[in-house]
Design a protein around this nucleic acid. Structure first.
Lengths: 157, 157
DNA sequence: CGCAATTTAATTGCGCACAACTCAATGGTG
DNA sequence: CACCATTGAGTTGTGCGCAATTAAATTGCG
C-alpha cells in the first residue's frame, strides 16, 4: 500500500482535486438521470429515496426515515410535507408517544411503486457499467463513507 | 460480464438502492469533512472548488470556471459574488467581449492557497483508503459520469 | 449594412442540506 | 412528586444546484 506521508503535496493536491471533482460530478450526473426518470412520477430524487424506504418498510416514524437516509428533520419535515400535499403520504402523531410522527403510504403512494418499477433497471443501464463494477463502486463508496464518518478531523489546520 | 437484462427486478432494485444510497452518503460524508477542514478558511466546499480552479489556472471567465466544474451561471454568479464580498476574488467585464466577466484572484485570495495546503493530505488521510483504491474509485466515478452524461434517457417510463 | 440568432451573465423560483434554534412530550433522578 | 435533561419534530436562515427567463453584447447571414 502506498502511504500518504510518502507523497509530495503537489501530487496529493492533484489527487484530491480529481477525487472531489469526480465525486461531485458523478453525484450530479446521477441526479440528472434520476431527475429525468422520475419527472413524470412527480418525484425528486430525495423524495424517491424516502418512497423507497417506505415501500420497503411500510409505516415509519420520521426519526427512522432520517436514520436510514442520514437526513435530519430540517430536511425531512418540509420534504414530507410536500409528499403529503402530493397525496402520496400520510402523517400522524403517534398515540403512544406524542413527540413522534408516523409516516405512512396512502393508497396512491403504494400504487406509485409499480410505475417506479423500471427506474432501477433504466438507471443502472445508463451507467454503462457491468454489475461487477457497480458492486465494486458501491463497496469503495461504503468503505470511504465509513472511514470519513469515523475520522475525527481537527478543525484547525 | 453480467448483463443487466439477465437479472431480476428485485435484485436490480436492491442494487440501485445500494448504489444511490451509498453515492449519496459518500458525497455528504465528504462534504462534512470538507466543511470542518475549510471552516477557518471561511470557504464552503463549492467555493473551495472554484478557488482550486483559480489557483491552478489564474484568471478565467465565468464560462470557463463553469465548464471545469459543470456549474452554470445560476450557481456561479451568487457564489462568485460571495467570494468577491469576502475579498478573495475580483470580477470585471472583459474589455474585448463585454458579455464575458473575468474572475481573478486578489492578493488575499492568492495568499489563502498556502493556508489551504494541508487540506488535501488531511482529507485523503480521513478517507482511510490507500492511494491505489482512491485512484480506482476516481476511475470508476469518471467512467460512470461519462456514461451517464452521454446516455440518452427517455423521459417516459 | 441591418436584423435575427447565438452567446454570456445575471436573476428568479423551487427544492435540498445543514446548523442553530424553538417547543412540546417524555424519562430519569433526587 | 417535582425538576431538569433528553428526545422528536418543526422552523429559520444560509448556501448550493438547476430550470427557466431576461438583458446585453456579439456573430452571422442575407
Amino acid at each position: 500500500m502506498t502511504t500518504l506521508p510518502g507523497m509530495a503535496d503537489e501530487e496529493l493536491l492533484r489527487l484530491d482535486q480529481q477525487i472531489c471533482f469526480s465525486l461531485n460530478a458523478a453525484s450530479r450526473a446521477f441526479g440528472g438521470v434520476y431527475r429525468v426518470l422520475l419527472r413524470d412520477l412527480g418525484l425528486t430524487y430525495p423524495q424517491y429515496l424516502v418512497m423507497l424506504v417506505l415501500w420497503e418498510d411500510g409505516d415509519l416514524p420520521v426519526k427512522r426515515i432520517g436514520e436510514r437516509l442520514r437526513l435530519d428533520s430540517g430536511t425531512l419535515s418540509p420534504l414530507l410535507k410536500r409528499l403529503e400535499v402530493a397525496g402520496l403520504v400520510r402523517r400522524e402523531r403517534s398515540p403512544e408517544d406524542e413527540r413522534s410522527v408516523t409516516v405512512g403510504l396512502t393508497s396512491e403512494g403504494s400504487v406509485l411503486r409499480e410505475r417506479a418499477g423500471q427506474v432501477p433497471r433504466r438507471l443502472l443501464a445508463a451507467t454503462g457499467l457491468p454489475v461487477e463494477d457497480l458492486a465494486a463502486l458501491r463497496e469503495l463508496l461504503e468503505r470511504v463513507t465509513g472511514a470519513l464518518d469515523s475520522a475525527v478531523v481537527e478543525p484547525a489546520p
